[in-house]
Design a protein around this nucleic acid. Structure first.
Lengths: 225, 225
DNA sequence: TTAAAAATATGATATTTGTCATGTTTTATT
DNA sequence: AATAAAACATGACAAATATCATATTTTTAA
């Protein structure tokens, strides 16, 4: 099994602040797991008792709303941690994590890392920093959800994916989402998402090839109202 | 000037985890400030360089959206801290804090407390816990914003205030908000908020006396769709 | 490979929500 | 107490979005 010591992914999250010793211990107890597209890593309400380090792939964090629709709150990509909140207090997961591509994740049991959180100030400060950033982003999403039109939100989602998920050599957004997932990210009906994407296509803002989407006119997308 | 050592309010936030010595030092450098209803404590984009402990009163944390409307992200009441994020990294405030009632807040400079955050694990763990809780709540707000109707959101806001802000002896919600603030909490037009509150009144879910609102039928409010 | 299932697409229509206009009531100020 | 300003209220209408129906395309699985 591969070792955390050599894992580049660690550099992108707060695990980078662990000492050599700590990383070595973690490396020996972590459990690597392959998750296929569509499979769940954990579900809302579940007690997860540890964090997942995303070694490869992308997943969605979502929550089932009363009307039966899944709202995607956040996308989590390679290099990020999942389930940090489980390290703090005894809370169960507030969101479900479901793979949007094939993934490899490493599970680190809470019991093995909780001590480091208490002892290693760099680590806890780093985690604090990450949570502060998450909080800021969540607050911004609240404002967008409340104040922007569905069309704007969808345009911004496409721009977000272009920037944060990245594009292939031929310009397509690396992650192909279903129209339903786009709707669940934006908080609208699937038909509405489909309609707006069709319109973006007609207007030359994007082009598609099967499920893949390519942004053709970045500035026009930014100007969408 | 009053001392932090005797301040009950401290028990309700992470400052409770400071040692006697630490609290004593904080007490000597903190600056108490009276803020009148409508006045701002800090503004979006400002560098605040410290935390505010709310000794009395309630304020809103809001953000100006592109269309010129203020979106209220959170209400912060007596006992809570404001601006925790300023302690972490060098970031400026993401939200504005404006008093909704007359307030008393104590400002603690970052320079005086940042060391405690590094040295006192109980304190940093506590802050971590608070941020985790905030994050969870923000995520839940995202889901509500995206999936619930304006009417539902307004009903829930009334229930939230009833539970968290409390009521007077005669049953009215302690904090009187303008219809515009209700609209900005829910993310809707002021006229829409007014209309829905009028309807709630007509239907006997609430009653009003001037600006004050009393919940008359709690269960019906919970059932609003 | 082919049938079934799921995803995408689009029209028609209903519902929700926003905007503008205007009037009334409440609050603040002199 | 009189006046101005702000907040509240409501109608009329427009725009955004959801829902339902149905057709087509793509994917999945036997």
């Amino acid at each position: 099994m591969s070792k955390c010591e050599q894992c580049i992914v660690r550099q992108f999250n707060s695990l980078k602040s662990l000492t050599h010793q700590e990383i070595h211990r973690i490396s020996n107890c972590k459990v690597s797991r392959i998750v296929k597209r569509g499979e769940s890593i954990f579900e809302e309400g579940e007690t997860i008792n540890g964090v997942f380090c995303v070694k490869d792939g992308i997943c969605k964090l979502s929550k089932l709303s009363a009307n039966g629709k899944d709202q995607i709150v956040k996308l989590v990509a390679k290099g990020e941690l999942l389930g940090q909140r489980s390290l703090i207090g005894e809370e169960s997961a507030n969101l479900s994590a479901i793979a949007l591509s094939d993934m490899e994740v490493c599970f680190i049991p809470k019991s093995e890392i909780i001590g480091d959180l208490q002892k290693n100030t760099n680590f806890s400060m780093d985690l604090l920093k990450e949570m502060a950033q998450d909080l800021k982003e969540s607050d911004n999403v609240i404002v967008d959800m409340a104040q922007k039109s569905v069309k704007q939100r969808l345009a911004e989602t496409l721009l977000y994916m272009n920037n944060h998920i990245g594009i292939t050599e031929d310009g397509y957004i690396k992650l192909s989402l279903s129209r339903e997932d786009y709707a669940n990210l934006v908080g609208t009906a699937t038909e509405s998402a489909i309609r707006i994407l069709s319109q973006f296509k007609r207007d030359g803002l994007i082009s598609t090839s099967g499920k893949q989407i390519k942004i053709e006119d970045l500035n026009a997308l930014k100007r969408v109202e």
